[in-house]
Design a protein around this nucleic acid. Structure first.
Length: 361
DNA sequence: CCCTCCCGCCAGCAC
DNA sequence: GTGCTGGCGGGAGGG
């Protein structure tokens, strides 16, 4: 309908109208239907009124979560929310296996940054492990893959799914996923990417933005497929989720095409141009005042949390913060990491004691 | 000021 | 060569 700032003052540029999150919501509103099977990037771009580039961002993270699958150039097939549980399950297993939180072994989430090289993480520290037959891989190719939004998304998710961490800030996530790219640019770039990812994952309700208890520091909480906090002690009745002040994407759908502030703002007239028709006029785009379009609560879907109803120790904590970066940096690094994850110390301390037998520290 | 993160240049690859 | 993908980071919006 009306674009946000209709009325009095001339239209003003608003970043929020163009956020990846909103765009993702619109994308979902447009394609999250039963009769949708194939999605063309061009179609999406034009329907949503954005540049193609932005579609790639969304599509890449949605694909990482199983909601989409690449079919061919420019073509994706829609899998929907129902595909999320399985995808997460796979990520969890994968993460565990890769020693992402595994017991011994080194992490291979590392990124070598810094010009040349491109260390392939030779994971496995003492494990049979079948070397990847992909010896002829184009090096630069996986270097690229290694830095892809998709992979980052999956690793970010593994962080939650393979550990008992329920809350994490993007800075921390970047540090961990970087193995320790530490300061400067690399870190900042990583964080930028994480913001992008977090925004779309938020619009899909897999995570939620909040802040650390006391430290007011913004962080993201894992929600999982239509749920709240992972199973644990205080799990509120499944009936209704917290529903706190979630990031609400405005009611505006538009993705008008006027540039940032570069081009001289049309004085007087509103630059409605470009967009021929209001993007997406599907009725499915109704936004709930507060909940916004993605109120999708999986109906009968299983929590997909812990599939094993049987024994199995209580909550598996597999993320081993203690050895997160050891393979690449000496001890002092561990110390730093320990401090970094001070808030989770208890968790892995008990984990460590439980697994290793001796309490650390 | 710092946090958030949009925009779009341009490098790789795929046709 | 053209077109599709998608890293990457400058720098602007917003609190």
């Amino acid at each position: 309908m009306a674009v946000a700032e209709s009325g009095s003052g001339g239209s003003v540029y608003s970043r929020k109208q163009k956020s990846l999150g909103l765009l993702c919501s619109n994308f979902l509103g447009l394609y999250d239907r039963d009769d949708v099977h194939s999605i063309g990037l061009d179609d999406a771009a034009s329907k949503l009124g954005v540049e193609r580039r932005r579609i790639y961002d969304i599509v890449n993270v949605l694909e990482s979560v199983g909601m989409l699958a690449r079919k061919a150039k420019n073509q994706y097939s829609w899998k929907g929310f129902g595909a999320i549980p399985r995808a997460l399950q796979e990520l969890r297993e994968e993460g565990v296996k890769e020693s992402f939180g595994g017991s011994q072994g080194s992490i291979q989430i590392k990124v070598s940054d810094d010009e040349d090289d491109s260390y392939w993480n030779s994971n496995n520290g003492s494990q049979p492990d079948k070397a990847n037959p992909s010896s002829a891989s184009s090096k630069s190719a996986d270097n690229r893959r290694e830095k892809s939004l998709g992979l980052l998304t999956q690793n970010f998710i593994k962080l939650f799914v393979c550990s008992n961490v329920g809350l994490i800030s993007l800075d921390d996530a970047a540090k961990v996923l970087l193995g320790d790219g530490h300061n400067s640019t690399v870190m900042r770039t990583k964080v930028r990417r994480l913001y992008d990812i977090a925004n779309v994952l938020s619009s899909v309700n897999l995570i939620e933005k909040t802040q650390h208890k006391e430290s007011r520091k913004p962080a993201f909480r894992w929600l999982g497929p239509g749920g709240k906090r992972e199973n644990g002690s205080a799990t509120p009745p499944a009936t209704q989720i917290e529903l706190k002040k979630k990031r609400t994407f405005g009611t505006e759908i538009s993705n008008i095409d006027f540039k940032r502030a570069k081009v001289d703002p049309p004085v007087g007239i509103k630059p409605v141009k470009t967009q021929a028709a209001p993007p997406v006029k599907t009725e499915s785009l109704e936004y709930d005042s507060d909940r916004s379009a993605k109120g999708y609560q999986f109906g009968p879907f299983a929590p997909a949390k812990t599939p094993a109803p049987a024994s199995e120790a209580p909550v598996k904590r597999m993320f081993d913060f203690e050895r997160l970066a050891p393979a690449y940096r000496p001890q002092y690094q561990n110390q730093a990491l320990k401090e970094l994850f001070g808030h989770y110390v208890e968790a892995w301390h008990s984990w460590y004691a439980e697994v290793v037998g001796t309490p650390l520290n």
